[in-house]
């Protein structure tokens, strides 16, 4: 039981850290703001996200 909780926590952390969980939040947000519009699929969201990454830069330090 305890191991399971640990595994869940690790999975949660990795999904959050890598941004994999972003899509879930995006859907939630989308449903809230546009209740009638269909939610973009994961693939469609990925395209949006890439476009966004393309125009932003983030520093990586030494």
């Amino acid at each position: 039981m305890n191991t399971r909780r640990w595994m869940r926590a690790v999975r949660w952390y990795l999904r959050e850290l890598t941004g994999e969980a972003e899509y879930d939040r995006y859907c939630e947000r989308h449903r809230h703001h546009h209740p009638l519009a269909p939610v973009p699929t994961r693939r469609e969201y990925q395209v949006l996200r890439t476009l966004h990454q393309e125009t932003r830069s983030h520093s990586r330090c030494c």
Partner: peptide
């Protein structure tokens, strides 16, 4: 698409 953890 978007499966970052497994890909990593």
């Amino acid at each position: 698409p978007g499966r970052v953890v497994e890909t990593s």
